[in-house]
Simulated scan of single mutants.
Amino acid sequence: MSTDASPASDAPPEGRAVLPRLLAVVLGLTAALAVMLCAFALPSVNGGPHHAPLGVTGPAAAVAAIGEQLPDDAWEVTAYADPEALARAVENRDVVGGLGVGGDGVSVFTASAGGQQIAAAVGGLGGTLAQRQGVPVHTRDLVPFPADDPRGTGLGAAALPMIFGGMLPAIALIRLFPGHAGLPIRLAGVVAFALAAGAAVAAILRFAMGTLDGSFVTTWLGLSLGMAALAIPFLGLESVAGLAGFGLGAMVMMFLGNPLSGLATGPYWLPDGWSTLGQILPPGASASLLRADAFFDGAGAGGPVLVLTAWVLAGLALMLVADWRHRAGARRRQPAAG
Score class of each variant (00 low, 15 high):
Val26Phe: 04
Pro13Trp: 01
Ala17Ser: 07
Val18Cys: 04
Val18Arg: 05
Asp10Asn: 11
Ala11Phe: 10
Pro12Gly: 08
Leu33His: 02
Gly15Trp: 06
Val35Lys: 01
Pro12Asp: 12
Leu33Pro: 02
Ala5Arg: 12
Gly15Pro: 10
Asp10His: 00
Ser9Tyr: 05
Ala8Glu: 11
Leu33Asp: 05
Pro20Tyr: 01
Val25His: 00
Ser9Asp: 15
Leu33Lys: 02
Ser6Ile: 11
Gly15Arg: 11
Val25Asp: 02
Arg21His: 12
Ala24Val: 10
Asp10Trp: 00
Pro20Trp: 00
Pro7His: 09
Arg16Glu: 14
Ala31Ile: 08
Val25Gln: 02
Ala5Glu: 12
Pro7Lys: 07
Arg21Phe: 11
Thr3Asn: 15
Leu27Ala: 04
Val18Gly: 08
Leu27Cys: 09
Val18Tyr: 06
Val25Ala: 08
Gly15Ala: 13
Ala31Arg: 01
Ala32Thr: 08
Leu27Thr: 10
Glu14Leu: 13
Ala8Phe: 06
Leu33Thr: 05
Ala32Ser: 01
Pro13Ile: 03
Pro12Asn: 13
Ala31Asp: 02
Leu22Asn: 07
Ala17Asp: 15
Ser6Trp: 03
Val18His: 01
Leu27Ile: 13
Thr30Ala: 04
Val35Thr: 00
Leu29Gly: 01
Ser6Gln: 15
Ala8Pro: 05
Leu29Ala: 00
Val35His: 02
Ala8Ser: 11
Ala17Asn: 10
Ala34Ile: 13
Leu22Ala: 12
Leu33Val: 04
Glu14Phe: 08
Ala5Trp: 09
Ala34Met: 11
Pro20Gln: 01
Arg16Asp: 12
Asp4Thr: 07
Ala11His: 13
Leu33Gln: 03
Ala5Met: 15
Glu14Val: 14
Leu33Ser: 03
Asp10Ile: 01
Pro20Arg: 00
Arg16His: 11
Pro20Leu: 01
Leu19Ser: 09
Ala8Thr: 11
Val35Ala: 02
Leu29Glu: 04
Leu19Gly: 07
Pro20Lys: 00
Ala32Arg: 05
Leu22Phe: 07
Ala24Asp: 10
Ala32Met: 12
Ser9Trp: 07
Thr3Pro: 15
Ala32Ile: 11
Asp10Met: 08
Gly28Gln: 03
Ser9Gln: 14
Pro20Ser: 01
Val26Lys: 08
Val25Pro: 00
Val18Pro: 00
Val35Met: 06
Arg16Pro: 07
Leu27Lys: 05
Pro20Ala: 01
